[in-house]
Simulated scan of single mutants.
Amino acid sequence: MNNKKAKYIAIPFLISIIAILFIHTISKDKEISASENRALAQIPTVEDVKKEDFTTKFENYFSDQFPFREELSQLYNKVELMLGKNKIKNYYVLENNWVMPTPIDVFSEEDLKDSAEKINELSQAALKSNKKVYYASTPHKESMLTHLYPKFTKGLNNATENKNKFKSYLDKDKIDFIDIDEDFLSKFNEKEREKLYFKTDHHWNGIGAYEGFKTIMEEMKKTESIKNINWDNYIKTDLKKGYFLGSYNLNLNNLVKEDEDIPYVHSKNKHKYEYFKYDGKKETKGKEEDFVATRIHEDEILYGGAYMFGNACNILKIKNKDALNDKKILIIRDSYQAPTSWLFADMFSEVQLVDPRYTEKLDLSIKEIIEDSDADIVMFMYNSTDFKSMIDEIK
């Protein structure tokens, strides 16, 4: 290669490197990656030099803060899709814009026993304080829509196997287990189950939550004094603003363009719910808009912003003087529970919501919260695929 040709190659390359370094220098560092759901590395400090891990941290920093990183990732995903791939990152992108996760692995017997034992111990604490205990297993999209996966996908029954083994290790003398998975599979066909879930998110939608809630209440009616539930009194309304950005689609850099409805199911005559945040010592009354559908005015709406109750505080209490029952219920929950909050408040005079992921500011463990609560009923409400990770959050 002569010098002239070398210049034609070297000079554009050097200009590109300098341009990237310049953009990297003037660009504001990002704190998180929405598509990867993780914090991004920040510029190393002098302390890192002293610890002799500056080089590694700088490499991670440069990689995470590389200019147009998210845009390049999105472009790469689009190219993969155009080339006919249906599995991108850890997701299957299927017909009619359905996005499904890679099936979960089988949990070890030891892990499942440990998770069950933690629930058994907490249930014993609840029983000692005269509280009835339920465990409601909410059906994850993965185990309800297996028919959408490509043929020969491995591990399609792993989630069900995990849930059933976990269920077998729970103390049946202490806990009433409500298996909504089984009810959905027996009650709805494949096409009907599709209507209960978001296409691009891992949650059920408001319709699915309502059907799951009906299963819970029909089971609870067998042992609780809850009568005269008029299911005809419930209607569906849709949010007609914003664009729903599902969690799976978020991780795919919004690769799938699907205009999904955000449905809510609620009683025709909405009750006068009262909202209180509780820090373990005192209650502070708040406004509904501080806790319910807090981000529905944004252009892109995530599941949490559409439904989430109580994410703004450690413990949320919803009180309803006109509830069908004068009992109080404490729900230890994950995000699947969120669209059912008003529904529970129609049935119980007080609903207490606790998400173990957001109790770090409390001076109470989950066991202490249960013992401290004046609720008559304790319900653990976790989805049937990720229940282990949620139970691991319990301190």
Rank of each mutant, 00 (worst) to 15 (best):
M1E: 09
M1W: 04
N2D: 14
Y8K: 13
I9V: 14
A10Q: 02
A10D: 00
S16Y: 03
I18L: 00
I18M: 00
E31C: 01
S33E: 02
E36Q: 11
T45F: 03
D48I: 05
D48R: 06
K50S: 10
T56D: 12
E59I: 11
Q65E: 03
Q74K: 14
Q74P: 00
L75N: 03
Y76L: 10
N77H: 03
E80R: 06
L83D: 09
K87P: 02
K89D: 13
Y91C: 11
Y92P: 01
Y92L: 04
E109Q: 13
E109W: 00
E110V: 13
D111N: 15
L122P: 01
S123F: 10
V133P: 01
V133N: 06
T146E: 05
Y149L: 07
F152Q: 15
K154D: 10
L170R: 08
D171F: 11
I178V: 15
D181L: 08
F184V: 12
E190I: 10
E190W: 04
K199L: 08
D201E: 08
D201M: 09
H202Y: 12
E218D: 14
M220Q: 10
E224K: 02
I226C: 03
N233D: 15
Y234V: 13
L239E: 02
L245R: 07
L245H: 02
S247I: 09
L255H: 04
K257R: 10
E260S: 12
D261A: 15
D261F: 08
H266D: 10
H271F: 05
E274W: 01
Y278D: 09
G280H: 05
G280C: 09
K281S: 14
K282I: 11
K285C: 07
F291R: 06
H297R: 14
E298P: 01
E298F: 08
I301G: 05
G304Q: 09
F309R: 10
G310H: 04
N314I: 01
I315W: 06
I318W: 04
K319G: 01
N320S: 04
D322R: 11
A323I: 09
D326F: 01
K327W: 02
I329Y: 07
S335L: 04
Y336S: 11
P339W: 01
W342I: 05
D346E: 11
Q352Y: 02
Q352S: 14
V354S: 04
P356L: 10
P356H: 09
R357A: 14
Y358S: 11
T359H: 02
D363Y: 05
D376L: 07
M379E: 12
F380H: 06
T385W: 00
T385I: 04
E393W: 02
I394C: 02
I394T: 06
K395E: 11
